[in-house]
Amino acid sequence: MVSFVPLFLVSILFPATQAEQLTKCELPHVLKDLNDYGGITLPEWACILFHTSGYDTQAIVKNNGSTEYGLFQISNKLWCGSSQIPQSRNICDISCDKFLDDDLTDDIMCVKKILDIRGIGYWLAHKALCSEKLEQWRCETL
Score class of each variant (00 low, 15 high):
72 F>Q: 10
107 D>M: 11
92 C>G: 04
1 M>E: 13
58 Q>Y: 00
34 L>G: 02
112 K>I: 07
31 L>D: 01
44 E>Y: 00
63 N>C: 11
88 S>K: 14
48 I>G: 07
68 E>N: 15
113 K>M: 12
67 T>M: 12
2 V>E: 13
9 L>E: 02
17 T>M: 03
75 S>R: 07
13 L>E: 00
24 K>Y: 02
12 I>M: 10
112 K>Y: 03
53 S>C: 06
101 D>Y: 05
90 N>I: 00
73 Q>E: 10
3 S>M: 13
8 F>W: 08
6 P>A: 05
17 T>A: 09
91 I>G: 05
10 V>G: 01
133 K>F: 07
69 Y>T: 00
122 Y>H: 15
96 C>P: 14
26 E>T: 10
24 K>I: 10
116 D>S: 13
56 D>E: 08
17 T>C: 06
135 E>C: 08
3 S>D: 01
84 Q>A: 15
118 R>S: 13
23 T>G: 04
126 H>P: 07
51 H>D: 01
54 G>H: 03
108 I>D: 09
49 L>D: 00
114 I>N: 03
106 D>N: 05
21 Q>W: 01
9 L>F: 10
98 K>M: 09
6 P>W: 06
72 F>Y: 14
117 I>V: 14
31 L>F: 14
51 H>T: 04
19 A>H: 07
89 R>S: 15
117 I>G: 02
